[in-house]
């Protein structure tokens, strides 16, 4: 077997020191994606630094009604947390829509954000992939791309980010906190993922060797009435072909506040700001929802076999916002 070093970090500073911003070192959290990629030969780390003992598995309330979620909180614990369920129900729904019970027990919040695309060409070493091997080409562009991006992609990569959790976090303006050997930093999730451009292999704004320590959710009263809807090719245990995190606050028939984020349409969870702008202050009607979705999807550049995603996302926006408005009216 391919040998690699395995180290256990006692704490955050220890983890950073053990990593040392070394190219061949990877942090290991739940391992639900990294270990698979190691088996496939996509990831060939020389060393793993296991984060299991780090004290980052807590969810704390912040002043004003937000939450600070430790980076090694498991998916299962996040979904079950009473304050997550009360303040950000779409986040619980998103987490529970992903993977399986066993995987959610292992998978962590930080790891979820850093998971890699499930584009089948990315994990097939015999095929070109710019994300895996920069400059080798994109096999999906003219190949199998039914579940690839319609927004924000480039001719170099059309892969989508697979996270469900990240879609809900994006809708609620999450901020990623990290530590480096040079000190702490933070970056809004909206800026966390880099544009695809001609560097699809460079995925996040994290500095080399940085360790995600927490994800902070600012207070968002609108999020208390939120929903995550995921569409996939079977009822469970499949990645989304399109998903939506939505929150809606309607007052006197008009949209007071709204959050919309799309999943499985881009290389990152896609905050639908154009749609939010189109809706805010306007009437809470199905026609307005559809027009808002169209405003967002005007930028879509579907490939030959994934144009259905435009229809799907438009339909999801209308259906979920209609549901949220009806439930609020009851």
């Amino acid at each position: 077997m391919r040998e690699f070093g395995y180290l256990r970090a006692p704490d955050v500073s220890g983890a950073l020191a053990l990593h040392g911003a070394d190219d061949g070192t990877r942090f290991l959290a739940g391992g639900t994606n990294l270990v698979d990629l190691m088996k496939a030969g996509v990831e060939r780390p020389e060393r793993l630094v296991d984060l299991a003992e780090l004290p980052l598995d807590r969810i704390e309330e912040t002043a004003g009604g937000g939450l600070r979620i430790g980076a090694t909180v498991s998916n299962s614990d996040l979904a079950a947390h009473p304050e997550v369920r009360r303040r950000y129900p779409a986040l619980t729904q998103a987490v529970l829509a992903g993977a399986s019970g066993q995987l959610r027990n292992m998978a962590t919040v930080g790891g979820n954000l850093l998971q890699r695309t499930r584009c089948a060409y990315f994990t097939d070493l015999a095929r070109p992939c710019n994300k895996r091997t920069p400059g080798s080409g994109c096999a999906a562009l003219r190949g199998e791309h039914r579940n690839h991006a319609i927004l924000g992609a480039s001719e170099h990569c059309v892969a989508v980010h697979p996270s469900d959790m990240g879609v809900a976090l994006t809708a609620f303006d999450a901020v990623v906190a990290y530590e480096t050997l040079d000190g702490p930093g933070e970056v809004p999730l909206a800026d966390f993922y880099l544009p695809v451009g001609d560097t699809p292999h460079a995925e996040t704004a994290l500095p080399a060797g940085a360790l995600i320590t927490a994800v902070t959710l600012p207070p968002a009263p609108v999020a208390a009435r939120s929903r995550y809807r995921k569409v996939r090719e079977r009822a469970s245990y499949a990645f989304a072909i399109g998903s939506l995190a939505a929150a809606l606050d309607v007052r006197d028939g008009r949209v007071h506040d709204v959050r919309l984020a799309f999943g499985a349409v881009a290389s990152r969870p896609w905050r639908a700001r154009a749609a939010e702008r189109a809706l805010t202050g306007g009437p809470a009607t199905a026609e307005a929802y559809a027009a808002a979705a169209d405003a967002e999807l005007a930028a879509a550049e579907p490939l030959p076999d994934n144009g259905y995603k435009v229809t799907l996302m438009r339909n999801l926006v209308v259906a979920v916002l209609t549901e949220l408005a009806e439930e609020a009216g009851r």
């Binding site: 060409y121 199998e144 009822a235």
Partner: peptide, 15 residues
């Protein structure tokens, strides 16, 4: 493409 049980879907229990 996707010759594994993540890429080749068959019914899950929920189906």
């Amino acid at each position: 493409v996707g010759a594994d049980l993540a890429g080749y879907h068959f019914a899950a229990h929920a189906d």
